[in-house]
């Protein structure tokens, strides 16, 4: 991962985390909170491939785990976003760079991240996980994230294209 990539990823992830927790969460939308950080991870993984996607996912998840008002349970979103970043980079490695591909990737990633987090949290014995709420969380999360894709993914993709026009993740 080159230095410009690290800088861009850090900037986008931190902005996404602040936007998500200070602006979107207090809106009190029904169901899940729109996940800007996840969209950044997906957009960068689509652009940079599985290895960098996984690294960005891990770092982004750790930021979400530790940014206030988090209160423990670090590593969970890191594990979930790590796998999401890797899987998106891997599955869509040979896909074209089209909006349809991005929408498809976001839909899968959004649903998988909510399910994955709930599974991991209940696996480590967190009593707070309510499986009854999971279907509505998955649905609302997918809807919000798909809507936000139209804004976030082109912006992130454009910035990524600016720092290295020819991604060379097929090594």
């Amino acid at each position: 991962m080159s230095l410009p990539r690290v800088g861009l990823a850090a900037l986008l992830v931190l902005c996404g985390a602040v936007l998500e927790l200070a602006v979107l969460a207090p809106l009190g939308l029904p169901g899940a909170t729109p996940d800007v950080v996840l969209l950044v991870v997906v957009a960068l993984a689509l652009r940079w491939g599985p290895l960098d996607g996984a690294v960005v996912g891990f770092a982004a998840g750790l930021v979400v785990d530790l940014t206030p008002p988090s209160d423990g349970g670090a590593g969970r979103w890191a594990a979930v976003f790590l796998l999401v970043g890797f899987a998106v980079g891997r599955v869509f490695e040979d896909a074209d760079d089209t909006p349809v591909v991005a929408l498809f990737a976001v839909t899968l990633a959004s649903a998988a991240s909510v399910l994955g987090y709930a599974a991991l949290a209940s696996l480590v014995g967190d009593d707070g996980v309510e499986w009854a709420r999971v279907p509505s969380l998955v649905t609302s999360s997918v809807i919000y994230d798909v809507v936000l894709t139209a804004v976030v993914v082109p912006v992130v993709g454009g910035l990524a294209r600016r720092i290295d026009p020819e991604p060379d993740f097929r090594r």
């Binding site: 590593g75 890191a78 790590l82």
Partner: peptide, 19 residues
């Protein structure tokens, strides 16, 4: 890289118990 990061994340999960 994938395996190392996953192990790190899971270690953190174990170390940083929410309760």
């Amino acid at each position: 890289v994938l395996v190392l990061l996953l192990l790190t994340a899971l270690t953190l999960v174990m170390l940083d118990d929410r309760t």
